[in-house]
Amino acid sequence: MATKKFMYLNRRSSFGTIYAIESLEVVLIAAAFEQDVSLAFIDDGVYQIVEGQNADGIGMKNFSKTFHALGDYDINKLYVSAESLEERGLSADDLMPLVYEDEDDDWAEKPSIKVVFNVELSKIMSEQDVCLSF
């Protein structure tokens, strides 16, 4: 099968609606198809990958830890909007330390998250073949 560039556009936080977890479910399935996968976190989507989420008090499943598994599935392009972080009083330090092992660099551990400005995000988006919005 041909390889296409897929972008998963996440703009909502983790628990208020089901979009975040069901988006992650698609991403995990997508890994099996060996396509070029990117995730974008814009607007409240940035809260999906904030460190220290605890869902005990709301009786819902905390799926945020699943993001740590993405690196093992060769999904290592997680683009986070710098402007969206700043608007929310967040910085890269508030995000989960998501990493992958780079097979082309002696399995060196590298960060999966790239904080990018909108102008760069715009360029990345324009290179995509398919954009799935959640």
Binding site: D43, E83, N118, S122, M125
Partner: peptide, 10 residues
């Protein structure tokens, strides 16, 4: 959000 990321050709 769309306006923030739309490029010149879209």
């Amino acid at each position: 959000s769309c306006l923030n990321t739309i490029d010149d050709t879209s």
